[in-house]
Design a binder for these strands. Structure first.
Length: 825
RNA sequence: GCUGGAGUGGCGGAAUUGGUAGACGCACCGGAUUCAAAAUCCGGCGUUGGAGACAACGUGUGGGUUCGAGUCCCACCUCCAGUACCA
């Protein structure tokens, strides 16, 4: 490639050095109103991919634009450095996860720097550093003290062969990914977080997040899944030694029509009931089968299947026994894992009842239906509203009223009552892995569970743990876990589980505010100044988990007495994936494009410009090599025209503008107006860049770079504004161009320019003329032309007149400055 | 299965939120420049019919509302993301 003028590598290296030397990105250096721009920090996998380039180019454009709009910007970066891939790499290479992680951070840091991203590198952090995780160990202990953290049973995938817990993604078709042995479900003692206590808060505060995408708010709302209903405890008939079976229902009004019960196969009482019912084998087989079945076999759409446990429950209001079944469609992780079945009014129960010949008892007569419901003739369940029938003392009640009345009755007789259920589950944070932050707990035979004393924090990882893939490396370590009990001093053992990595990513944005603070997780003053994050940018895939955990953390921290806002992220942008040939880039598909090779070949400005131009941030982005070439050509043209404009000399704008001068100035200022508008109202980078390209075509048409038809001052202004407008997207070339045209100060420190509205004014507007909604002609009129003028000009248009000939005009619609429509018959 | 999205030329996308469908870029075609090529510049480019003027059709599918629908409503189809131990 022969390119005498635009040498991207040289330009980019030079400007990166200058920015670095002048501290252009240090948060404290300029502006007043603080603004915190944050992109979701990366997992240091080793190499940057196009998703990174996209995420960080978007954030950088936001940061650079707003800094020039007068904000004091905090724009930090760090590493979400704990996690399974490091441990897997260590097993494979027989090395330490930290070695791999830190080497990756080093590589990725230099790649990020090569992109020219405007980070305040002094604030860099890595979550695997004890200086970081000691604070989240402390926060955990404070949560434990407050009862937010607690011990519970967690159901996990367990591989017997490897003696280890498997992540869902490590299970392929029910088999372990390493040894192919069948995976079983096992309950482990684990640490959990009562995020469910915050479910209502998390739901309520969603309403305040007006700068979040509606899609994310809807997903969180459904994930939290609030429903109002009743809890009902049904005693097992003739088994006084067993606890009653609890169900949750949103329809207590239908309780008088409950003819059987269904339990999830995973329900803890299933095998006990089956044993007493004498059907252990059949039930056991069914439970085992369901344990292996995938989700679709358990959903609403799947065929209803089940097995009778041989046992009955006592219906407390009917005084009758109802059979207890195990059913495929009942899910253990929603409600209580058991449902009361009302086949007349619930479709799933109806199908189940039909299949197994169970009673169907209608108890609600739908509004507006004269014929009384009859179980014998019903073809489907009738879930709609109505009036209670066949319900003894409750007959005649409206069903909404009956929900309250029945809940009160259940409460009165001591077997339930009104309640609110959330789909959200408590957050299990224990992981049986090495490369994570240790959970700071000590177990003593005599004193029980003790927190690690504050003076002993952080609890760090042993360097010499063995990574074999079998068992837990910390539990297997010969000495690490053995410590004296902090209370009695007798031999005790450490907790050998580490935190879920979401634990780290739930508060890192607070640490950035004062990353080296030694007296606590963050300096309250720094947090008061920067938090909440004004604009958070990252993938949509985090909609429910990371974004919810981070929101929860803020609320919990506030309850622990920390001064933090109740919500962490004021505005959220979720960026779409980068795909190629219609599929997500992945090694297995062989469609990966390495950003490094693009940067080496064309420069960082080209890579950034293309990725921002090719699609709006929220949408999927289809990678296209030819498009990159096009972005590069555009920047090269900018460089060439900049040189040409600079060569015309440093002339000011003339007082008298020629026609050509006015045309070019109109293009210049309309471009600037459009770019400013697109960045201020929702960051439409793609259309902003298109406007710059369009303007550059006007610069070429004005003869700049050849035989110029415009005044030197107008030509120079046209390219100066390109430098300004290009800065958020292609900052290196923008600064180069700006300097080329005589500027002595870099653009980061130069305020964003205002456009000249008067220069944008048009001498006429085009109005479209339709007849019966079909385009028949166009007219040019003065921008302030009145309705009569427009109508007569429209009727005079030959093709319009032809289509109106011989017809009666019924209606004339005039949209000023835009369109005329004649309705004629 | 459930929850949330998306679908517009050969391709990526645009359309001031109900008012010219296809801005801008890519690809392609033609021309200028050149000994030639590259690069650059100029022009064309939804589909069908027509020499042309022009006409009809056209935003995943099928209906509907409206003077007017990519945009609003109803019913579907396909693809994508998440689904709680990947981060």
């Amino acid at each position: 490639m022969i390119e005498p003028h635009y040498r991207a590598q040289d330009i980019e290296t030079r400007w990166q050095q200058r920015w670095n030397e002048s501290g252009a990105f240090v948060a404290e250096n300029q502006g007043d109103s603080p603004y915190y721009v944050l992109e979701m920090f990366p997992y240091p996998s080793g190499k940057i991919h196009m998703g990174h380039v996209r995420n960080y180019s978007i954030g950088d454009a936001v940061a650079r634009f707003l800094r020039r709009r007068g904000h004091q910007i905090l724009h930090p970066i760090g590493w979400d450095a704990f996690g399974m891939p490091a441990e897997n790499a260590a097993i494979k290479n027989n090395s330490h996860p930290g070695t791999w992680t830190y080497a990756n951070i080093k590589d990725m840091r230099s790649q990020f720097k090569r992109l020219g991203l405007s980070y305040d590198w002094d604030r860099e952090l890595a979550t695997c550093h004890p200086g970081y995780f000691r604070w989240e160990q402390k926060i955990f202990l404070e949560m434990l003290d407050k009862g937010i953290a607690f011990r519970s049973q967690q159901r996990v995938n367990w591989c017997v062969e490897c003696a280890t817990v498997l992540a869902n993604e490590q299970v392929n078709d029910g088999a372990c990914w390493r040894c192919d042995e069948v995976v079983e479900q096992r309950d482990l003692e684990a640490w959990s977080i009562r995020i469910t206590d915050y479910a209502q808060d998390l739901l309520d505060d969603l309403d305040s997040l007006s700068d979040w995408p509606d899609a994310v708010r809807a997903m969180q709302r459904n994930w939290i899944g609030r429903s109002v209903g009743a809890r009902i405890a049904l005693p097992v008939s003739g088994a006084d030694d067993l606890d009653p079976i609890e169900v949750f229902t949103t329809r207590p009004d239908t309780f008088m029509g409950c003819t059987f019960m269904s339990l999830a196969p995973e329900h803890p009482m299933v095998m006990e009931l089956a044993a007493r019912g004498g059907v252990s084998q059949e039930v056991g087989e069914f439970v085992a089968e369901m344990g292996r079945a995938d989700r679709s076999a358990r959903g609403d759409g799947a065929e209803k299947r089940g097995v009778f446990t041989g046992m009955y429950a006592d219906h407390p209001l009917l005084g009758r026994k109802i059979p207890i079944y195990v059913a495929n469609f009942v899910l253990m992780d929603y409600g209580t894992g058991a449902v009361m079945a009302v086949p007349a009014h619930d479709q799933r129960d109806f199908e189940f009842a039909q299949k197994y010949g169970l009673d169907i008892a209608p108890v609600i007569q739908p509004h507006g239906e004269d014929q009384a419901l009859d179980a014998a003739t019903m073809e489907a369940a009738r879930p709609e509203a109505g009036v209670l029938i066949n319900s003894g003392p409750f007959d005649g009640l409206d069903n909404e009223e009956a929900k309250r009345v029945l809940a009160a009755k259940l409460s009165e007789i001591g077997c339930g009552g009104a309640t609110i259920n959330f789909r959200l589950r408590d957050w299990g944070v224990s992981r049986q892995r090495y490369w994570g932050a240790p959970i700071p707990i000590i177990y003593c035979d005599s004193c029980g569970v003790s927190p690690v004393p504050d003076a002993d924090l952080p609890v760090t990882l042993p360097e010499d743990a063995e990574m074999t893939g079998e068992g837990s490396p910390l539990a297997n370590h010969p000495t690490w876990k053995h410590v004296p009990c902090p209370s009695c001093g007798t031999p005790a053992v450490r907790e050998t589980d580490t935190f879920d990595t979401f634990w780290q990513s739930s508060w890192y944005f607070l640490r950035y505010c004062s990353p080296r603070f030694e007296e606590g997780p963050f300096d309250p003053e720094a947090v008061a100044r920067w938090m909440p994050v004004d604009h958070y940018i990252g993938g949509i895939e985090h909609a429910c988990m990371h974004l919810l955990y981070a929101r929860f953390f803020m609320k919990a921290l506030a309850d622990l007495g920390y001064e933090v806002p109740r919500e962490p992220f004021k505005r959220l942008t979720t960026q779409g994936m980068v795909i190629k040939d219609g599929a997500k880039m992945s090694k297995s598909k062989g469609n990966v494009v390495d950003p490094t090779s693009i940067i080496e070949r064309y420069g960082a400005d080209t890579a950034r410009l293309f990725i921002l131009f090719a699609a709006p941030p929220e949408k999927e982005l289809e990678w296209n090599d030819n498009g990159v070439e096009g972005a590069y050509r555009f920047l090269r043209r900018v460089h060439r025209l900049g040189e040409a404009a600079a060569a015309l000399g440093e002339e000011a704008l003339p007082t008298d503008l020629s026609e050509a001068d006015q045309v070019l100035r109109r293009s210049t200022h309309k471009m600037l107006r459009k770019v400013t508008h697109d960045l201020e109202n929702g960051f439409h980078f793609n259309t902003a860049i298109a406007a710059i390209m369009e303007h550059l075509n006007a610069v070429t048409a004005a003869g700049v770079g050849g035989e110029s038809k415009v005044h030197a001052g107008v030509a120079r202004e046209s390219m100066e504004m390109v430098a300004h407008a290009l800065f958020p997207f292609a900052p290196h070339l923008a600064d180069e161009l700006h300097e080329m045209l005589g500027a002595s100060q870099d653009l980061m420190r130069t305020p964003w320019p205002e456009h000249d509205e008067a220069a944008c004014e048009e001498s006429s507007v085009t109005i479209v003329v339709q007849v019966m909604g079909k385009l028949r002609g166009k007219i040019e009129v003065a921008p302030d032309a009145d309705k009569e003028t427009i109508l007569s000009a429209a009727k005079a248009e030959p093709s319009v007149a032809r289509h109106l000939e011989g017809k009666t005009l019924i209606k004339e619609i005039v949209v000023p400055g835009r369109l005329v429509n004649f309705v004629a018959r």
